[in-house]
C-alpha cells in the first residue's frame, strides 16, 4: 500500500515497523522451530513464548525487544536526493522515534559514558549510502541488538587453534566455532551472517549485508547454497537450543557473502543476528512511501 508522506514521517514509520513487527519470514521460521521441538519441552515452550511476545508487540505497537539496537541504515538513492539531506532526515526520524518510545535511547558517548538520549551522536545512526542511476529511494533498516553483536567474531585464516585453512572448509570451521562460543548469549537461535574475504572493514560490512536476506531463501551461488545448508544442519547438532536452554534449533540460517581480498589476507567475519531479527524496507518516490518486510 502506497501513502503520500513527508520523508521524515516515512522514516519514523520505517523505524516503528522494524521495532514492533518481526518480518513474516522470521515469524514463519520461529513457528517451524517451535513445531520441531518435543511437546512441552523447555525449547518448545520458549519458542511459543517468543512467538506470543512478537504477536503482542505487533498488536500493541511496542518494541519486540527492549534493546532496540544499533540503527543500521542501508540507503540506495537516486539522483534527486542528496546524502546530507537524507542524513538529516534519518537523524530527525531517530529522535522522533525515540520520543515515541519505538526506540530506547541507545547512543552512548564512549568517553564520558553519557547517553545522548535520542539515538544520535558521532557515527549514530550508522548510514551506508549507495548512489543509483534510477530515481527513487530505498532505505533498508536493521535493528541490531547489543547482546548478539557482542558474540560476533572475526577470524584470520589460517587459524591453527581450530584447524581452519584458507578454503571453504576453513570458513565452515570458523562458523562452527563462532556458533559454539556464542552458546545462548546472542539470544539463540541466531541467523549467522558471514563475510568471506575483503579487508577487516568490508568483510564485516558483507556479513551485515547478508543479514538482509530472507531467513529461508537460497544463495544464488550453488556451492555457497550447499554450504549454507550443510552449516545450518551442523550447527543444529550442537544442542544449544533457544536461549541456550538446549534443543535442536541453534541457528535458523547461515548466510554467506564474499568479497575479493588481497593475497596476504583472508578474513572470515561473523555477525550474529538474534531471534528478534528486526528489519524493514522503505521504498520512497515522488512523496509516496511503500513499506516491505
Amino acid at each position: 500500500m502506497a501513502n503520500q508522506m513527508e520523508l521524515k514521517d516515512a522514516l519514523v514509520e520505517l523505524i516503528r515497523r522494524a521495532s514492533t513487527h518481526l518480518p513474516p519470514d522470521q515469524m514463519a521460521a520461529l513457528r517451524r522451530a517451535a513445531d520441531s521441538e518435543p511437546k512441552e519441552s523447555m525449547a518448545q515452550q520458549t519458542f511459543e513464548m517468543m512467538i506470543a511476545n512478537a504477536e503482542a508487540a505487533a498488536t500493541s505497537s511496542t518494541p519486540t525487544c527492549q534493546d532496540t539496537g544499533t540503527l543500521l541504515f542501508y540507503v540506495d538513492y537516486g539522483p534527486e536526493f542528496r546524502q546530507r539531506e537524507l542524513r538529516e532526515a534519518i537523524e530527525a526520524a531517530a529522535r522522533e522515534a525515540t520520543r515515541r518510545s519505538y526506540l530506547r535511547p541507545n547512543a552512548v558517548d564512549s568517553r564520558s559514558g553519557k547517553n545522548s538520549g535520542d539515538n544520535t551522536g558521532i557515527g549514530a545512526p550508522y548510514i551506508h549510502f549507495e548512489e543509483e542511476e534510477k530515481p527513487g529511494l530505498r532505505v533498508r533498516l536493521m535493528l541490531k541488538g547489543g547482546g548478539s553483536e557482542n558474540v560476533g567474531r572475526q577470524y584470520t585464516v589460517p587459524d591453527s587453534e581450530i584447524g581452519a585453512g584458507r578454503d571453504l572448509d576453513g570458513v565452515r570451521k570458523c562458523i562452527i566455532d563462532a556458533v559454539f562460543k556464542a552458546q545462548g548469549y546472542g539470544c539463540a537461535p541466531g541467523i549467522i551472517g558471514v563475510g568471506i574475504g575483503g579487508d577487516r572493514m568490508s568483510s564485516f560490512l558483507a556479513s551485515k549485508e547478508s543479514l538482509f536476506r530472507k531467513v529461508d531463501d537460497t544463495n544464488p551461488d550453488p556451492e555457497l547454497a550447499k554450504l549454507e545448508e550443510q552449516l545450518t544442519a551442523e550447527c543444529n547438532t550442537l544442542g544449544i537450543g533457544p536461549m541456550g536452554f538446549g534443543g535442536s534449533t541453534s541457528v535458523l540460517g547461515v548466510k554467506l557473502n564474499f568479497r575479493h581480498r588481497v593475497p596476504a589476507s583472508f578474513f572470515v567475519s561473523i555477525s550474529y543476528m538474534c531471534w528478534a531479527n528486526r528489519k524493514a524496507t522503505l521504498l520512497y518516490r515522488n512523496g509516496t512511501a511503500e513499506f516491505e518486510q
Partner: peptide, 10 residues
Amino acid sequence: IGGLAVLLAR
C-alpha cells in the same frame, strides 16, 4: 527469556 520484552513489561 531474551527478547520477551513486551510480555515481561506487562
